[in-house]
Amino acid sequence: MFLATTYDKVSEAWTKLSPNKLVLKRIASYAQSSADLLTNLILHGHSDSYTWECLVRTPLNNYDAIVLLHRDKLCYPQRLLFPTGVDHGKQVIQGKTSKEFYPYMAFGNALKSLEEAKTKLMVDFDPTNYFLEDLKASITEEFPDTFKVWYDSLGGDAIGLTWERKGTKKRSRDDAEETRRDPVDILKGLAEVGKGFVKSIYLLKAPKTPVVI
């Protein structure tokens, strides 16, 4: 598979096992909507802060659920240009911040001794990456083929989730009833994975078909 654009005929980006059709479709959709948005902004001469925010942030309505993280627990909270705010959907949980770890050391919290540094200073610790690893492992083990995870690899306080589309395999009524899961309960389970780091979770769109695991 080869990805190319009209304006960049020199670079090469070959893929082997990924992305799949769902990701490719989303990439094409993002590219088209970004081009349309940029054209509209240029034609109408917009230059306010919202303009830049539109260019670097993915619209939240592209996701089925949103996981918000505590900003003070991010690896580089000062680099967060546009904090995420969710004003629609159903709030599933509201989590408290943890006091067990601090991914960065503020200047106001100067260390007094080497022993204190050994217990408090964390080198190359990015809680978002560790949470994503645990989240993907939890989805694979407990909720297989249920969610797809979307996030900004350069940092951010939000993680997007979309429901996976399953095949139309026929199941007996008794079997389906035994393994059917409430989407809200699934999201609450994911919140437990990031307890102390997850600020809140919002359900924006319920799956079109029952979640059967």
Rank of each mutant, 00 (worst) to 15 (best):
A4K: 13
Q78M: 08
G108S: 03
V184I: 05
L43G: 03
G95F: 07
D48S: 10
Y76K: 05
A35W: 07
E115H: 03
G194V: 04
R180G: 00
L69R: 05
D48F: 02
G156K: 07
V184A: 00
F131W: 02
L135T: 13
S49D: 12
E192N: 13
D157K: 06
S138H: 10
E116W: 09
G45F: 06
Y7F: 14
L154I: 07
L203T: 00
E116H: 08
A191Q: 05
K73F: 02
S172C: 03
L154N: 10
Q78G: 13
L43H: 09
K148V: 14
V23E: 15
E133Q: 14
L74T: 07
R181A: 07
L114C: 11
K73A: 04
V67P: 02
L132S: 05
V56C: 08
D185I: 14
P144C: 01
Y63S: 05
K170W: 11
M122Y: 12
K205G: 13
K166Y: 04
I66F: 05
T128D: 04
Q94K: 14
S153I: 02
C75V: 11
Y30D: 10
L204Q: 05
R180C: 01
G189N: 15
H70V: 06
D134W: 09
L68I: 04
W52L: 03
L161P: 09
H46K: 02
R165P: 02
K188V: 13
Q91A: 03
K148L: 08
L121R: 10
L154Q: 02
V211C: 05
D174F: 10
T168A: 11
K188G: 14
E142T: 04
S98C: 14
L74E: 02
R180W: 01
F197S: 03
L60Y: 08
N129F: 04
K112C: 15
F82H: 01
P19G: 11
